[in-house]
Design a binder for these strands. Structure first.
Lengths: 226, 226
DNA sequence: GCAAAAGTGTTGGCGTTACACCCATGA
DNA sequence: TCATGGGTGTAACGCCAACACTTTTGC
């Protein structure tokens, strides 16, 4: 029995949610799209393995990584019985260059345009998206996908992408500010042709301390009864 | 590398939350307390493995089981590198007899009196409890721990045990009823010396359909800001 | 000055907490 | 009839969704 790690890597370019996928260079299923993965080494922890795999592809460390499930169906890998521990990672697309990606046949792909993946990787992506939605509704997870300095409209775009819904600008603003997790950098986003949005950065200490508190980032309009 | 399954089995006797543990009959760590576990068979899915292990110990099928994590630290099992997929199960204590337990050296132990367990099993229990609290705050999970017919005070006791806090009887009542998940059996709980509580049963269909909705079973009093 | 996007204020509805009151039962 | 616990009602508060208005910028 083999133990593998597969990584679901979410990224955000400011407009749509993306997935980092790569085209297999080896058999089986050569040429098809797949999650990034690898086998667990004899002397490494699972987390380390996930970190290693991410580092090799993106060159990034200090990435938000979380274990979300372990897939172990008997026939999931047609070649040999393989148990796969699935991690999901949130990274800021801009942080990481194109070269490493090319070297690995990797590519950012819009979540909406996702091709079918090998094995049970589609299921894994579904689970991960479900998980992301679940968690981001209650915890200030979104910041992980943004650059160090970001605007509130950017954050709102992100949440809208995650949930495929439009949010009210004003309520969203107040909700985010009420977390007291933002620090005004005093600067403005130079882009955009209209009123420039304020650039904020995350209050890391508060973020770490309060990450597990229950916020309510998504609106919950009239609960239907019955 | 070996693949194991460990099961954290929660039970509720009407007053306190319990854990089903057993005393190891084999080396290593013979005689110490441990979670119930076993190795994954070559031809069985992970879920099936968890089900098999649970069935062998409790004789129960149709148990609420959920995968919560996979532990894979290098030295966690001192004998051989072992990856353990952890499941947690919620069962109604009364459903299951004493014989099977004795045969396996197993015993229900109050969560508060939990002895130290072998390997990293203590961590697993912490994670499971955290998970239980997280989930039970938002989803109608508690019913799994109660007999088929139960009273609202029983359910309240359960929630109080899970969160180690007292809840307001009246608000709890309304909250539970507002879920529309309860069916009045028309009967009363014969026990108790005072006014007999109404016995309800779960509306299974609604329960399955709405399990993933976000309720708020726990009170959330004045959010401290700052 | 106009359009477009960022940011601030206000209000009304509704869910929820906190609390008072009645009911049923056995001793 | 009293104590104990189950069950219902209600009112004030606070949060939040919905909406109007002001500000800034580039053309």
């Amino acid at each position: 029995m083999l133990i593998a790690i597969d990584c679901i890597i979410f990224g955000f370019d400011g407009a749509v949610l993306k997935l980092l996928l790569f085209k297999r260079k080896i058999r089986p299923e050569k040429g098809r799209w797949s999650l990034l993965g690898g086998f667990v080494k004899q002397d490494e922890d699972l987390e380390s393995g996930a970190g290693r795999i991410l580092y090799n592809l993106t060159g990034l460390t200090n990435v938000f990584v979380e274990q979300i499930m372990t897939a172990g169906k008997v026939g999931r890998d047609p070649v040999e019985r393989t148990i796969s521990v699935v991690y999901f990672a949130l990274i800021n697309i801009l942080d990481q260059g194109q070269e490493a990606l090319n070297a690995h046949n990797a590519q950012w792909i819009n979540l909406d345009d996702k091709p079918n993946l090998i094995f049970d990787h589609d299921e894994m992506v579904s689970k991960a998206l479900e998980w992301l939605r679940y968690k981001a509704a209650l915890h200030p997870l979104g910041f992980e996908l943004l650059p160090e300095r970001f605007t509130i409209p950017q954050l709102q775009n992100l949440y809208e992408a995650i949930y495929s819904m439009r949010l009210d600008r004003r309520n969203f603003n107040r909700k985010i500010h009420s977390t007291n997790l933002l620090i005004d950098t005093g600067e403005k986003d130079p882009l955009s042709n209209t009123k420039k949005a304020t650039l904020y950065r995350l209050d890391k200490d508060r973020y770490n301390n309060k990450f597990d508190s229950f916020w309510h980032f998504m609106p919950h309009p009239g609960n239907e009864k019955g």
